[in-house]
Design a protein around this nucleic acid. Structure first.
Lengths: 158, 158
DNA sequence: CAAGATTGACGGCTCAATCTTC
DNA sequence: GAAGATTGAGCCGTCAATCTTG
């Protein structure tokens, strides 16, 4: 074999390297699947999901946080999704500076329709290679890091 | 508390959600650290590391693979890094269609200098929250998925 | 004609500056 | 004046088309 490449021995370096590759692989797969199946990018689906998880509405800056996007990036993203009628902007009743982004009926429909595609993609490119026990362990480990880095992102298990 | 958000119960969904957030957090941290400390983007560092792991040189399309980037994206990325003198293009001796990207002395120097910053960033935003045992377990789980999805990416433990 | 790499056109994101409301 | 959101300029990535070599 000619192309022998060394891997880092340090476990934390191995974690980061594997995290990069797995993330890229799954993200690309979901991107393609959603684009082909529903004609929307993964970022749109993530917005729709976050809105549903939040109960239907989020402020712009909250959406920016959960989407790990800048404020301006969120503005432009919501512009595009709104142009397709999947979400709508409403002035925030309690603070007239702010805007609420709300799911439209069409948005809920698209989100529900896209859900199975995303589930299948995750299963195909991630879950399939793990036993149930391994999946639980992996989720717990990643959530340990997530919670430590982003306290208040969400309660572990409501 | 008002902003109560639900989390998915399905372990594989939890894995994907946590993977997204952890990846974004660490990537942003490393990006900032490298930009401030060495004046280079994370993508540049990754190219330098991949070249070193490969023994000093890679073909353009090989670099595209390990960097999970398109061919054209790799062309432009190497353009910028080459303009700063960290890598150089050499015509491939065995196949005159191809180009080899090689580390320059300056590139090796920058890579060596940036290494500790990256290590510290990974430790700070990822490793710190895990015991040694957990880090090993997490690396093993992610590598299980990585190997299954990208056979030949590299041997697990040479 | 297939493979390797590059170029042009374009989409999407970020930073800094701006406007509005608290 | 600070926070919420938007806009303009610019960087970085992709896709499709192109050029060169096998």
């Amino acid at each position: 074999m000619s192309a022998m490449r060394r891997l880092p021995d340090e476990p934390r370096l191995r974690v980061w390297r594997a995290l990069l590759l797995v993330h890229a692989g799954v993200a690309n797969a979901l991107e393609d699947s959603l684009q082909e199946g529903r004609g929307i990018p993964l970022a749109w689906y993530q917005v729709l999901v976050e809105l549903r998880l939040a109960g239907g509405a989020l402020r712009m800056h909250q959406l920016a946080d959960v989407a790990t996007l800048s404020r301006s990036g969120t503005t432009r993203l919501v512009d595009r999704i709104e142009a397709e009628g999947l979400v709508a902007r409403r002035v925030c009743p309690s603070d007239r500076r702010g805007l609420e982004v709300v799911l439209t009926a069409k948005g809920q429909e698209v989100q529900k329709g896209a859900g199975p595609l995303v589930l299948r993609g995750i299963q195909e490119h991630l879950g399939r290679h793990l036993t149930d026990q391994q999946a639980v362990a992996l989720a717990a480990l990643l959530e340990t890091v997530m919670e430590a880095e982003q306290p208040g992102s969400a309660a572990p298990h409501p």
